[in-house]
């Protein structure tokens, strides 16, 4: 900065007061829904107090490194239309009996972990991976649901018009026709396509129990799910 300090004080001129008044009237900027709770959800990482000599300096550095890593995840805005189209295409093939590319769409190995079945008799049919996007498909009779995972944190402000709702304590973006839901899980944006919003709640609630509430339960469950599916960010 090339400015030099002024040598003397002078009273504010009327135009300065006018500018100051305009700036002072700027409203509070609200963070995108879910952002602060997402940040606060990292509190378990912060919660442990480093006391005495129990933790070495290297452990502290490691902890800070993990925290920094967790908070520096890239922002991701799931492409709702593209994911919906991808789901539809996959489902058409599935129900038409057309075999999908085995290299891309393979049945889950039951031995690799429980092939997750969802409430309402949805059973897993496989998953596909392209770039950093993973898709798991579950079906029952003539209906199917896809669960997409993209590494990063949801950029809520970039999503199209929809409803932000709290489903059993988890902030979810719900599209107007209530067939697409987006939630933030540890390290990944999870997009669920094909379920009614109420069913999303049931699916989330059905996941394995954790120790302190639904949000924790969902995070744990999603981490387990993404681990089993080999999703990144798990």
């Amino acid at each position: 900065m090339s400015d030099t300090p002024s040598t003397g004080w002078h009273p504010e001129e009327p135009w300065e007061q006018e500018i100051a008044s305009l700036l002072g009237a700027l409203p509070t900027v609200e963070p995108p829904p879910g952002f602060l709770s997402s940040a606060v959800d990292h509190r378990p990482l912060f919660a442990g107090r480093v006391t005495g000599a129990l933790f070495s300096a290297s452990m502290v550095a490691l902890t800070v490194g993990i925290v920094v890593g967790a908070l520096e995840q890239p922002a991701v805005t799931p492409s709702v239309d593209a994911l919906r189209a991808r789901h539809s295409s996959m489902v058409l093939d599935l129900f038409a009996g057309r075999s999908t590319d085995e290299g891309l769409f393979s049945a889950l190995d039951p031995q690799a972990g429980p092939p997750v079945s969802l409430p309402h008799d949805f059973e897993s049919h496989g998953y596909v991976e392209a770039d950093r996007l993973r898709q798991a498909v579950f079906a029952r009779k003539d209906e199917a649901v896809s669960i997409f995972s993209e590494p990063g944190r949801v950029d809520w402000s970039g999503l199209p018009s929809g409803n932000l709702e709290s489903i059993s304590g988890v902030t979810a973006w719900i599209d107007p026709d209530r067939k697409v839901a987006i939630v933030q899980a540890d390290g990944a944006a999870i997009t669920i396509v094909g379920l009614d919003a109420t069913e999303v709640g049931e699916v989330l609630a059905s996941m394995p129990a954790g120790e302190d509430g639904f949000a924790r339960r969902f995070r744990d469950a999603t981490a387990a799910l993404t681990t089993e599916l080999g999703f990144p960010g798990s």
Binding site: T28, V29, P31, P32, F35, A39, D155
Partner: peptide, 25 residues
């Protein structure tokens, strides 16, 4: 103070994406 930090961050950086990053920092 999360909202306070976020709002100040936004006024400084001018967009939500950078405001989120700054708030986390």
């Amino acid at each position: 103070y999360g909202r306070f930090i976020y709002s100040l961050s936004y006024r400084l950086v001018g967009n939500h994406h950078d405001a989120q990053d700054l708030t986390q920092e």
